[in-house]
Structure formats: C-alpha cells, structure tokens
Amino acid sequence: MPSVQRQPRGPVTRTFTEGYHFGPLWSRRKVVRFNTDIPFNESHANIRYVDMKSKYSRTGTSLSVHESHVHIGQDMFLVSGYWDPKADVSRSIFAVTRVIWRGEISVIRAGRYIPYCKRMKDGKKADLAVKRFAEVFKHRRIAKKLVPKTILVN
C-alpha cells in the first residue's frame, strides 16, 4: 500500500483532527485527537498532514506504517495501520472485523474539498473502512508469500 501522506512544505499551523483508534488492549474503537499540520499555501499538491503514528503504542523502526484511502459510498476515509507479527491479537479490530490483526489501526474521515474533516461522526462507517483495509492488507501479505520475490517490485 503506498503512502498517501507526507509532511507539508512551507510554514504550517498545528491543529487537531478527531478520528478512531483501534488499539490492541481495548474491546472497541476509541475517539482520539490526531495532531494535524495545515500549510498556509494548502493545495492538492501540498495537503494537510495527520500524525497518526504518534498514537501508536508500539512504534519501532522495523515496523512500517501503511496508509490507504478507503471509499464507502460517497465518503472517503484515510486509514493507517501497522502489522506486528510479534504482538498480541488486537481485540478491538477483531470485535469489528472478525479478522485476526496484530497491530493497531487508525481512521479519519477525508473529503473531496476539505482534505480532512475536523470531527468523525459515523463510527459504523469507520468500522467498515477498517474491515476493508485489514482484508486488503491481509490479501497482499498472503500474495507476497506465494509470489517469487523477483516478480514483486515493492
């Protein structure tokens, strides 16, 4: 999954965006505030940056964070997560998706004209976004095991 966020260029204003965090020790999703950097010259090429990685409890240099846009009807979500094979099964993700996930996932609502909404309103759609993200990530991990490394570019 390619990275869809990068630090904005130029001077920024720091604010927050609310979203859901699915942690390994909780039995359900939790509303959290993510730090957001808004550039003064915001455009499609220079968009806001949401620091989702700061809310993760296990961030190591060996763990890569994956991000993806997930569309559900007219709504778009930015979903970020990591897979840690040594971690325990995340109870909050399993309760929503029935997928065994070892790591954490965060979700914020993104829009076409407003890059990231200030407040997450619909938790059920966030659950669907997490389910789609987990299924796609799991499918790609399995596919990488079956395909010879010489064929895979990334």
Rank of each mutant, 00 (worst) to 15 (best):
S3C: 06
S3W: 06
Q7R: 13
Q7F: 13
G10Q: 05
P11N: 10
P11V: 08
R14I: 11
T15R: 08
E18N: 09
E18M: 10
G19H: 02
F22Y: 15
V32T: 07
V32W: 05
V32A: 07
P39Q: 04
F40G: 08
F40N: 12
E42G: 00
H44Q: 14
N46M: 06
R48H: 09
V50L: 05
M52G: 04
Y56S: 01
R58E: 09
G60Q: 11
G60I: 03
S62F: 11
L63M: 09
S64I: 12
V65H: 04
H66A: 07
E67R: 01
E67L: 02
H69K: 12
Q74W: 06
M76I: 09
S80K: 02
W83V: 14
D84E: 06
D88L: 11
V89T: 12
S90F: 03
F94H: 10
F94V: 04
V96S: 14
V99R: 12
R102I: 04
G103D: 00
G103R: 04
S106F: 02
V107Y: 04
I108H: 01
G111V: 00
I114V: 10
P115R: 11
P115Y: 09
P115G: 02
P115M: 01
Y116I: 06
C117G: 06
R119T: 13
K121Y: 10
G123P: 00
G123T: 00
A126N: 05
A126R: 02
D127Q: 03
L128C: 04
V130P: 00
V130C: 01
K131W: 04
F133E: 05
V136P: 00
I142V: 06
L146M: 08
K149D: 15
L152N: 08
